[in-house]
Design a protein around this nucleic acid. Structure first.
Length: 263
DNA sequence: CACCAGGCAGTGC
DNA sequence: GCACTGCATGGT
């Protein structure tokens, strides 16, 4: 299985496009920012923010075409999923926010998770300039909350789990930055020390924050994929170093109600 | 009104 | 080690 070639920086650089002469309402702003107006709407980026955050966040420097081309052959449902969810990328999210998000996610659907995360940010997150929204709370801010206050946000039995995570990170027992250097086994073990974090949540943090692309988190939807399309036998051990990427396409597919038909 | 959701910890065997 | 159970609450 070939490594995905890192194609010349992303095939996406707004500043190159801005100077390409093909459009005239994409303009440089003071401080090196870029603003594009089209179809009556505007997007704004600073060079620093794009290079420092968004390029990495959306994993723009990875060639997904090459990675998907390396997918195992002869897998009907996988082939269908890769087509159905075209354009999907695995984000490189902030480990702390990702950890909280997936602690919060257990036995909730996507909309309910969003509601819970938004409530957390409203309760103790800092304002984001230029928007009506708030950033995700820092570990210290979250650690300063008490359990009843968190339960009042509708978080239920996950409230003490979040508090345990916040306290561990805030007092240094769990250093999420240092974890990035650990091999998969040690990284997983460290995440599992947090109350409310089991194998599935740890896999999600490893995949969506630490970019460990071989991790394939099994939730109820993926359980359904395994049962319906693979006769109850998990195929993910045979999917190679990008199992988590391929599986994520399948997750989208099955959750959107597309029945698995291996063929 | 039911039933489900990107699970986990605790318990019993 | 594996099977079972209770857990809180919003979305559908």
């Amino acid at each position: 299985m070939a490594l995905p070639v890192t194609v010349s920086a992303a095939h996406f650089d707004p500043w190159v496009i801005m100077e390409s002469g093909q459009c005239f309402r994409m303009v440089p702003l003071a401080g090196g920012a870029c603003e594009a107006v089209a179809f009556g709407e505007a997007v704004r980026l600073t060079r620093a923010a794009f290079d420092r955050l968004w390029r990495a966040y959306f994993d723009l420097d990875t060639d997904y075409a090459a990675m998907l081309a390396a997918a195992p052959a002869g897998d009907g449902f996988l082939a269908r999923a890769l087509t159905a969810a075209h354009g999907l990328r695995i984000l490189r999210q902030d480990p702390w926010e990702t950890l909280c998000g997936f602690i919060l996610s257990q036995r909730k659907n996507l909309k309910a998770i969003r509601t819970g995360m938004e409530a957390l940010c409203e309760a103790c997150g800092a304002p984001v300039l230029g928007t009506a929204r708030r950033a995700f709370p820092t570990p210290h801010r979250l650690a300063a909350m008490d359990e009843p206050a968190l339960r009042a946000l509708g978080l239920g039995y996950r409230a003490p789990y979040l508090l345990d995570a916040a306290r561990r990170v805030a007092d240094g027992r769990l250093n999420l930055d240092l974890l990035a250097a650990l091999p998969d086994g040690l990284l997983q073990a460290a995440l599992l020390t947090v109350s409310g974090v089991g194998v599935k949540v740890a896999d999600c943090v490893m995949l969506f924050a630490y970019h460990r692309l071989s991790r394939a988190p099994v939730d109820v939807w993926i359980r359904r994929v395994i049962d319906c399309a693979y006769g109850g036998v998990s195929p993910y051990e045979g999917y190679g170093p990008y199992a988590g990427v391929y599986q994520q396409y399948q997750f989208m597919c099955i959750r959107d109600g597309q029945l698995p038909e291996t063929r």
